[in-house]
C-alpha cells in the first residue's frame, strides 16, 4: 500500500509541472502586453520596470516559468492587483468557506445518494424506484444557479427560514449545501443502484439467500457494502470538482470562497489572483483524484495489485 501511494504521488509530479505551466501561460495567452496584466493601470514607468524585473518579463518564457514556479513552491503567489493583498493570503482566507460548502455538500450527496440508490435497487422496477430515480435525475438536469435562485425565493424570501445570502451564520450554509448536493446526488444514486443490482446477481448473494439470511440483512450488510466501492470512486472524483465547481453556487448566494474569488479576479482581470486560484483548484482536483484512487486501493486489493504489477 505504501509503495502504491508513493508510486501514485510520483506520477503526479509531471502532471503538476504541465498544469502549472498552463496556469503560468495564462498571462501570456490573454491578448495584450503581460506587463499591463500584472500592474495597476496608470502606474509610473518606474513601477513598470520594477514589475518587469520582478517577473523577469525581459527574459525567455522558460526562465520566467522557472522563477515563477520557484516562487510558487516557496509559497509566494504574487500580489493581487485590485485587492492589493498577497494572493496566498486571499486564497487562504477563502479556502475555509469553500471547504465547508464542499465538505457538507459531498456528505449530503453521499448520504442522500446512497440512501436513494439503495432504496431504488431494493424496489427495482417498482414505482418507488422510478420515482426516486426521476427526482434525483431532475436534480442534475436543472442549472445549479437556477435551483439556487428558486430555493432563495422559496425558503429565504417566502418562508423566511434561512438567510438569503452571505456566510455569517451556519444557517446560511443550508441552501448552498442543498443546491450543490442535489446536483451530485443523482450520479451517486444511479451508481449505487446499478452496483447493488449487479452485486445482487453474484453467487455469494444467492448462497446467503439459500442459508436463510433475512432479505434486508443481505441488502444492507452484504450487497450495499459490496456496491460501495464504485460509489467511493465517484465521490472521490467529485472532491476536487465540488471545491472548484461550486463557483456558480457561491456566486448566487454571495458566499465567499475560491470560486467567487476566481470569478471576481476574472471580471477584474486580476491575473496574479486568477493564476493563484486556478493553480490551487487544479491541485485540489489532482489531490482529490489521488485520494479517491488510494481509498479505492485500500478497499479493493485487486486494484492495488494490478497497478503495482
Amino acid at each position: 500500500m505504501l509503495g502504491y501511494t508513493i508510486r501514485r504521488l510520483l506520477a503526479l509530479v509531471p502532471v503538476f509541472f504541465v498544469v502549472s505551466g498552463v496556469v503560468f501561460l495564462v498571462v501570456h495567452l490573454v491578448p495584450g502586453d503581460p506587463v499591463d496584466h500584472l500592474i495597476r493601470t496608470g502606474s509610473s514607468p518606474d513601477q513598470r520596470a520594477e514589475i518587469i524585473a520582478r517577473y523577469g518579463l525581459d527574459r525567455s518564457l522558460i526562465e520566467q516559468y522557472i522563477s515563477w514556479l520557484g516562487r510558487v513552491i516557496s509559497g509566494d503567489l504574487g500580489t493581487a492587483i485590485v485587492m492589493r493583498r498577497p494572493v496566498a493570503t486571499l486564497i487562504w482566507d477563502n479556502l475555509g468557506y469553500s471547504l465547508a460548502l464542499g465538505g457538507w455538500a459531498l456528505a449530503f450527496s453521499a448520504l442522500a445518494g446512497v440512501a436513494a440508490g439503495a432504496i431504488a435497487a431494493s424496489f427495482r422496477e417498482r414505482w418507488i424506484d422510478h420515482g426516486l430515480m426521476g427526482v434525483s435525475l431532475l436534480g442534475s438536469t436543472v442549472p445549479t444557479f437556477w435551483l439556487g435562485l428558486l430555493m432563495i425565493m422559496l425558503f429565504a424570501v417566502q418562508l423566511g427560514w434561512v438567510p438569503v445570502s452571505g456566510a455569517r451564520h451556519w444557517t446560511s450554509l443550508i441552501l448552498p449545501v442543498l443546491t450543490v448536493g442535489l446536483g451530485g446526488m443523482a450520479l451517486v444514486a444511479r451508481v449505487t443502484r446499478i452496483a447493488m443490482i449487479e452485486t445482487a446477481r453474484e453467487d455469494f448473494v444467492m448462497l446467503l439467500h439459500a442459508k436463510g439470511v433475512p432479505r434486508w440483512t443481505i441488502q444492507i450488510r452484504h450487497v450495499l457494502r459490496h456496491a460501495l466501492i464504485p460509489v467511493v470512486t465517484i465521490l472521490s472524483l467529485r472532491i476536487g470538482l465540488i471545491i472548484g465547481g461550486s463557483v456558480t453556487v457561491e456566486y448566487v448566494f454571495a458566499r465567499p470562497g475560491l470560486g467567487s474569488l476566481l470569478i471576481r479576479a476574472l471580471s477584474q482581470r486580476d491575473y496574479p489572483l486568477v493564476q493563484g486560484c486556478l493553480l490551487f483548484l487544479a491541485m485540489a482536483v489532482m489531490l482529490g483524484t489521488l485520494l479517491g484512487d488510494l481509498l479505492q486501493a485500500a478497499m479493493d486489493p485487486r486494484q492495488r495489485d494490478e497497478a503495482t504489477r
Binding site: V19, P31, L241, G245, L262, L281, V285
Partner: peptide, 22 residues
C-alpha cells in the same frame, strides 16, 4: 493524450470561464 488530459484537471465550468476570459 497528455495534452488532451490537461483539461481534466480543471472542472469544466472553470475551464470554460477561463477560456472565455481569455
Amino acid at each position: 493524450m497528455s495534452i488532451v488530459d490537461l483539461t481534466w484537471f480543471f472542472p469544466e465550468i472553470l475551464l470554460a470561464l477561463l477560456i472565455v476570459a481569455i
